[in-house]
Simulated assay, not measured.
Amino acid sequence: MKAVSRETRERLEIFAALLEKWNARINLVSPRDMPHLWERHIGDSLRLVPFIPRGARVIDLGSGGGFPALMIGIACDAEMVMVESDQRKCAFLREAARACGVRAQVVPKRIEQAGVPPAAFVTARALASLPQLLEWSAPFLLPEGKALFLKGKNLSDELTETERCWHMQHRILDNRAASGGAIIEISDIKRVE
């Protein structure tokens, strides 16, 4: 995991303790992932931090257990809009944002029904295939906005599939060869006519 300030580390520790407590009642992360929470979930989510300016407004789709939304909110002092349809997970997100001092709005709706104003950044992690992510993200992005997705080892295949129905600019920002995962930045999204 990348180095963070002492204050950020303390806030991340508050988050981790809260997640462990809540995970016993609702499934936020797989129980077998709990021993690897810091590297597999927190550290992975923190990989987005260098690409998001401090104080930015970010819409996170399918926020679930708070990854990457709350990590971005903590490390970037970002204003987070978290879209999550599971009411129990929404309760966790509200409590975790409060406990960790994250400026956050939790939208307890399906992504297609969220109806929030667009932002400069849209994020998602372990949510859907790239074509589906673009379908959901396009209405939430400002014209100059960027979508930042943490994707797995099938990214190349997903890009090929996506280019059939979407015009876009994209860059691979961070490629972790060991896990096969990457961060992809997408902008100038337009549906193929």
Rank of each mutant, 00 (worst) to 15 (best):
I184H: 12
L130F: 01
A182P: 08
L93I: 10
H170D: 11
K21D: 13
L12D: 00
E7Y: 04
L93T: 08
P108T: 04
R171Q: 12
F140M: 06
A24L: 13
A78L: 00
V49C: 11
V4L: 07
A114P: 12
T123K: 00
I42R: 07
S30C: 07
Q169T: 14
R98H: 09
K151D: 12
I184F: 11
L141T: 06
P31N: 02
L155H: 05
P131C: 07
F140C: 04
F121M: 00
R25Q: 15
F15V: 02
I172E: 06
I52N: 02
A124H: 05
K153H: 14
R171Y: 07
P108M: 03
G43Q: 01
I189Q: 05
F15W: 01
F67I: 12
A178T: 14
E20D: 09
P50A: 08
L150A: 09
P131K: 05
N175E: 14
H170L: 14
E39S: 13
P108F: 04
A104K: 03
E20C: 10
L130V: 01
I26D: 09
K109G: 05
K21G: 09
A126I: 07
K190T: 13
A124C: 07
K151T: 11
G55F: 12
R110Q: 05
W166L: 11
E161G: 06
R25F: 11
N154H: 14
E185W: 11
